[in-house]
Write a protein that binds this DNA or RNA. Structure first.
Length: 803
RNA sequence: GCGGGUAUGGCGGAAUUGGCAGACGCGCUAGACUUAGGAUCUAGUGUCCCAGACGUGCAGGUUCAACUCCUGUUACCCGCACCA
């Protein structure tokens, strides 16, 4: 393989030296922006999964350049994050050293695979020149009232003395040490993303995202329409509940409020059974991280004694309970309970022996009422609901909501599952949040001209005992002057989440070296949007939502040209291990792209990963299939020996060649990479069956294969005496020449194939029918039957229906 | 539980969107050339009671014709999970 490696290196050097893939802003050619998710440069190096999507987008980029587009295909690094920090703590170095080293490895790997990235636009989210703008944008959020501080519970590991992300606290147990995770209150920066819920939904109409991607966004936003109702408390005070089923309001027999909500704290003075209530609150706090894994065992809860609430529609006094199935941070943190028509309320009522009043008449006994009315039953009639009795459920739904609004104790509202974005992380290796806490002035934003706020250059930063960011220990850095009054003040020591830097990196690629703005409006208007964004399915929900939110905000304050800056988003399937399992070190099924490149060459790796299966689905690794791709490339190379000295194309290959051009072009743009390769194999096999082929024939195959296997094709192309393919043009096809003048089609009798006939383009239906009826075997099967009908589908099939 | 996806030979997967199911590749079998083959070439390769019949998770339906459309159902994968 040594000569293959050398040959590939030769072309990689050529592309570097000639800056073959650099694009210019403002170029007269049509701009086209192709984007892949920039990787987190981990210590374990590039994954074969990266290779799959990078090659796919690379193929499109290479083809479109040849088609005359000004293609932007950039690469950078999403390099903030916990692993680099952990590594650095352990080895007493600054994480930026680890990051620099990893980036170097990744970049060398990418170059060895021949991706046509425009490296002149490379940056890392950890570059001060970049995160300066991330900080600047945070200040815009703050200045527009979109960033605020709030106290929220965080996952806290008492052993590691560290705040954990939901992922690290999965199953209620600390991923590192296995201790049970607790909940701890912490003051955090928040972004008002929930304000954008409706816009984020509507914005989807202005995108070309794949349907499954759109659905992911919609589900994550989780809109539900309902009614918020104010409920008075006996003896003064009130609270609100949210319901999506206002029609069942007469069936309320109790209310349930969240143990972790604010309401119970306010009511505490009046609670008779304080000890019991407090105990339950405590229990819930411990449980809340664990409840995911704990099966839904019954409905726990306690009555809040001494306090009754009044059903606003009929004045009925009902008890209030505490229940951990009610979440403090969704809706109003309190629900009305209608056990007759809601499964969960029903279970709760049974558990605690509570009254059940049926309000929808489904003509059945109570036990079945829930099943029948919970998700359907629009046509059933109302009962026990005063003047609404006899209305259908659908009518009552509207009428009761109207009545609630008219009487003024409630209003129609939309609720969203999507919450505000918790923007603080108690970590060192992230963008410092550029806020200063002054004892006199409160929270004060840093002056924009003082950005970037750099991370301190120290090698020791153990986390603090109480879970503050490691930055809190670095006194020189923390202590500063208030930008407003000039007095002593302290910096915010939390840093931004990983999602921050990746929420706008695609804008920076449009204008990566701008030191006046994060990107100029001119540059953004030139590139217009990201035309085609590819990434993993695991990022299509959150990363994409954060990025869209960020962009919509920038649009609203006039800083980007479109509310949606990403047009098409697609996602690819994972590359699994040869055992069909997700690749992981522990399973020992990890493939290293370097090994493949060394042994089989980059082109083989690229071809195989495009050929391995449906791009949008997971596909297991198979080294045997990989070898098959090497054989295909060897065959392409050997075809050079068949080149004769005739001019032009071989006549009898013309149709297949035109078909192949069409196919390759169409399939590349529709993510049919595996069929791109199979049609090129068919073409190569056809060449192979010929005694000899012309130079032009061969050249065509090389150009069509070039987007997938750029090295070998450039090499053979050069040997043929042509100038480099990457500087040439993409072939065009003639639609008329994609059709054979004669064609074999099947003839069926009663839907079963009984023979084939050869037809020519000019044959009309009658001629085709005649030919079909003449066929010997067809006649045999028609014997003794009467022909009822003959169906002729031109160019496809004939079906003779007999009786 | 909710939402999404998937199901086709021994394996990865094709099928112009209702028109010859299994393209292309892997694997396997036999043969050729070879000291040798993990190289290359040739032929074969869905199943079965093989002139025929049956075959796209399962059961129905629509149609001249169904992997494709409709109804029901099962299994697996992914995401969110007590969301009122």
């Amino acid at each position: 393989m040594e000569n293959i490696n050398q040959m590939e290196k030769k072309w990689q050097t050529y592309w570097d030296k000639h800056k073959s893939f650099q694009c210019k802003n403002g170029d007269k050619k049509d701009p086209y922006y192709i984007l892949v998710e920039f990787p987190y440069p981990s210590g374990s190096g590039l994954h074969v999964g990266h290779v799959r999507s990078y090659t796919a987008q690379d193929a499109i980029a290479r083809m479109m350049r040849m088609q005359g587009y000004n293609v932007l295909y950039p690469m950078g690094w999403d390099a903030f994050g916990a692993p680099a920090e952990q590594y650095a703590i352990k080895n007493h170095i600054h994480p930026k050293e680890a990051v620099e080293r990893n980036i170097k490895t990744f970049k060398a790997q990418m170059k060895s695979i021949g991706f046509s990235f425009d490296w002149s636009r490379e940056f890392s989210t950890t570059d001060p020149d970049y995160y300066k703008w991330t900080q600047w944008q945070f200040l815009q959020f703050y200045k527009h009232g979109m960033a605020y501080k709030d106290t929220v519970p965080v996952n806290w590991c008492p052993t590691c003395k560290s705040v954990l992300s939901n992922e690290d606290a999965a199953g209620g147990v600390c991923e590192r040490c296995g201790s049970v995770v607790e909940q701890k209150e912490k003051s955090q920066w928040m972004l008002r993303m929930s304000d954008y819920a409706e816009d984020l939904l509507k914005g989807l109409d202005d995108t070309n995202f794949a349907d499954r991607v759109k659905l992911g966004q919609i589900n994550w936003i989780g809109k539900s329409e309902g009614v918020e109702v104010d409920v008075d408390i006996v003896g003064g005070g009130k609270f609100s509940i949210f319901t999506t089923c206002p029609e069942t309001i007469y069936g309320i027999t109790f209310f349930v409020i969240a143990p972790d909500g604010k309401l119970i704290k306010e009511l505490m003075d009046r609670v008779e059974n304080k000890d019991e209530v407090n105990a339950y609150i405590k229990e819930t706090a411990k449980k809340s991280a664990m409840d995911r894994t704990e099966l839904n065992k019954g409905k726990t809860g306690v009555e809040v004694k001494g306090i009754k609430a009044i059903n606003p529609v009929n004045g009925k006094e009902v008890p209030i309970f505490l229940g951990d199935f009610v979440l403090g941070d969704y809706g109003t943190g309190a629900v009305m309970a209608v056990p007759s028509h809601d499964q969960r309320d029903f279970e709760y009522a049974k558990e605690h022996n509570l009254e059940i009043i049926q309000v929808i008449d489904c003509g059945d006994i109570l036990e079945h009422a829930i099943e029948k009315t919970e998700y359907m039953g629009h046509g059933y009639k109302m009962m026990n609901s005063e003047e609404f009795d006899g209305m259908t459920v659908d009518e009552a739904r509207v009428e009761i909501a109207n009545m609630i609004e008219k009487k003024g104790f409630g209003r129609r509202v939309n609720n969203y599952k999507m919450r505000d974005w918790i923007f603080s992380r108690q970590r060192f290796w992230g963008e410092p949040i550029p806020m200063i806490n002054c004892p006199k002035c409160g929270w004060v934003p840093m002056k924009e001209e003082d950005l970037p706020l750099l991370l301190p250059d120290v090698a020791e930063y153990e986390p603090t005992e109480d879970g503050e960011s490691p930055l809190a220990n670095i006194k020189d850095w923390v202590n500063c002057k208030c930008p407003e009054c000039g007095g002593d003040a302290k910096r915010e020591t939390d840093t931004m989440p990983n999602w921050a830097g990746s929420s706008w990196y695609f804008l920076r690629f449009m204008d990566p070296h701008n030191d006046k703005e994060f990107a100029s409006m001119d540059a953004m208007k030139y590139w217009n949007r990201v035309d085609w964004y590819n990434g993993g399915m695991e990022h299509t929900a959150r990363h994409l939502l954060y990025a869209r939110f960020w962009v919509q905000f920038l649009y609203n304050i006039g800083l980007v040209p479109h509310k949606e800056m990403i047009w098409t988003r697609v996602s690819h399937g994972m590359v699994l291990g040869s055992d069909g399992q997700k690749m992981s070190k522990s399973k020992g099924n990890v493939m290293n792209p370097d090994d493949i490149v060394k042994e089989y060459g980059a082109d083989t790796l690229r071809t195989y990963e495009m050929f391995m299966g449906d791009y949008q689905m997971d596909a297991p690794w198979s080294t045997d299939s990989l070898k098959g791709c090497r054989r295909f490339l060897d065959k392409v190379e050997r075809l050079k020996d068949k080149v004769n000295d005739q001019e032009g194309f071989s006549e009898d290959l013309e149709v297949l060649q035109n078909q192949t051009i069409k196919r390759v072009e169409y399939d590349l743009l529709h993510m049919g990479y595996n069929t791109v390769i199979s049609s090129l194999m068919i073409l190569a096999n056809a060449y192979d069956d010929h005694e000899s082929i012309t130079k032009e024939d061969y050249h065509l195959l090389l150009v069509l294969l070039n987007p997938i296997a750029p090295h070998l094709t450039e090499e053979m192309n050069e040997q043929l005496g042509y100038s480099p393919i990457c500087e040439g043009e993409w072939p065009t096809y003639d639609e008329e020449k994609t059709v054979e003048s004669t064609k074999e089609i099947a003839v069926q009798v009663n839907g079963k194939v009984r023979g084939t006939i050869t037809i020519s383009l000019e044959d009309d239906d009658a001629t085709i029918q005649e030919k079909a009826l003449e066929n010997e075997n067809v006649q045999k099967h028609m014997e003794g039957h009467e022909v009822v009908k003959v169906i002729v589908i031109k160019g496809k099939i004939v079906n003779i229906v007999v009786k």
